[in-house]
Design a protein around this nucleic acid. Sequence first.
RNA 1: GGAGGUGUGGCCGAGUGGACAAUGGCAGCAGACUGUAAAUCUGCCGGGCUUCGCCCUACGGAGGUUCGAAUCCUCCCGCCUCCA
Length: 393
Amino acid sequence: MPLRFDILANDGEARLGRLTTPHGVVETPAFMPVGTLGAVKGVPAADLAAQGASIMLSNLYHLALRPGIDTIERLGGLHGFNGWPGPILTDSGGFQVFSLDGLRTVDAGGVTFRSHVDGSPMRFTPEGVVEMQERMGVDIAMVLDECPPWPIDEAAATRSWERTLDWARRSRDQSSGGPGGLFGIVQGSVYRSVRERAAADLSRLGFDGHAIGGVSVGEPAPHRRAVVEWTAPVLPAERPRYLMGVGYPADIAHAVNHGVDLFDCVLPSRNARHGTLFTRQGVLKIRNAQYREDPRPVDPECGCPLCARHSRAFLHHLVRTGEITAQILATLHNLRYYLDFMAALRQAIRLGTLADLTAPFAGRAAGAVHPAVPPDDPLAPPVAADPIEQEIF
RNA sequence: GGAGGUGUGGCCGAGUGGACAAUGGCAGCAGACUGUAAAUCUGCCGGGCUUCGCCCUACGGAGGUUCGAAUCCUCCCGCCUCCA
C-alpha cells in the first residue's frame, strides 16, 4: 500500500487523518486548491504553501494536451516541472472529457474526443490515463470515470456505472504499484441504490482511496448532500474518502460530518478572480459600490497578504481598474479562508466539538445554494492555532 | 471676413422621413460561478407608473414642412478644418 492513512481521532462520523504520500503528509480533512494547468491561477507555488496548502490538485487532461506528458516527464515529472514540492493529486480528465459535449464518443474501451485546444483527435483509455499520471510522478492518480450529466434516468446511470466499474478494474490492474496511490471513483447519479452498489463494488477493488464523483453537475443541493450520506458510509473507513469538486464551506462541513476527508473545488480561486470573497462575516462582492471607500480589511480575522495590509477600498479599486494584482490577492485570500476553515474543522474533530462548529452550516441545510454566512452568524469558523498545521510544511 | 464640415442619452459613437427611448462600445448598478476551454458569463442602464403594457421628456436652441422629424427647411448658438 503506497499511501499510508492514519486516523488520529474521530468525532461522530468525522475523522482527523494523516495521509502520508511520497511528497509529504496531508492532515485531513483537507482542501486541495485546484491548479488545473499545474499552477493555481495567479498563485506561485511558494505562496500556495504560505497560505497553508498541504496538497494541490492538477489535471491530466489539460497537461496531456499542453505541454504533453512527454515534456513533463523529461522535466522531472510534475513536481520538477511546476516547482510544487508537496503532494499532488491529478484528476484523470474524465470530468473534462465528458463535458466536451458533441466532441466525444464513448465505447467500452475508452473515450475518443477532440482536443479543445486545436481540434486534434485524442483517445483516453483507463490504462493510458493511469500510465500517464504515473509518468508524471504524482502522489495520487485518479481513475478514468464516466461522469454522467444531470439529469439522467436510473437505468442509464446503472449502465454508466457498470462501464465505470469495468474501467476501474482495468485501471487498478494497470497500476504499477509505484510510489503514488490510485483512487477509484463512485458514480451513480442521484440514485441511492446505484450509489450504494457502486460504493460497494468499488470498495472490493483495493484502491488506495475512494472518491465520490458526479456531484455538482447541476443537481439540486439536497441531492448532492444525499449522495454523500448514502455513499460515504459504504466506502472503507480505513481509506481516505474524497468528494470531488465540492464545494461551498457549508457543503464541505456537511461532508466532513459524514466522514469525507478530501475536497477540491475551483470556487475559492475562480470566485476570487471574479470578485467574490469568502469571509468569516459572509460572502463579500468586492466590486460592489459600497466598498469604494471602505477602509476595513476584507476579513479582519484573516492573516492572508491581502487582509494583513490592504483595505477593501484598495482591492475594490484594483478590481475595478483591472489590475492583475487584484486577482492574485483575492485568490490568496479565498484560499487562506478555505484552508483556515479546514484547519478549524480538524481542530474541532480533535477536540470533539465538530458539531458546535458546523451546526450553523447544517442549519443552512440542503436547500441553501448560497453558502453566505449572514453578517452576524456565529458560524464563522474559529481560526484557532492548530499545532498540527505546523507539521505540514 | 469667405468656404466647407459638425453638434445624438454620463463618455465615445451608429442612425439621414414612419419598424427610435434611439445599434455598438465604455463607464455605472447588480447577479452568477462547485473534479477550471472562465482575468468569464448574464441582467439592468432618460424619468414615472398599476412595468409581457402605458404616460412624460428627449438627438445644440427656436420656428417651420409633414398624417408622422434625430432625420427635410429657415434662423440662431457652439465647435472643427481650409482660404483670407
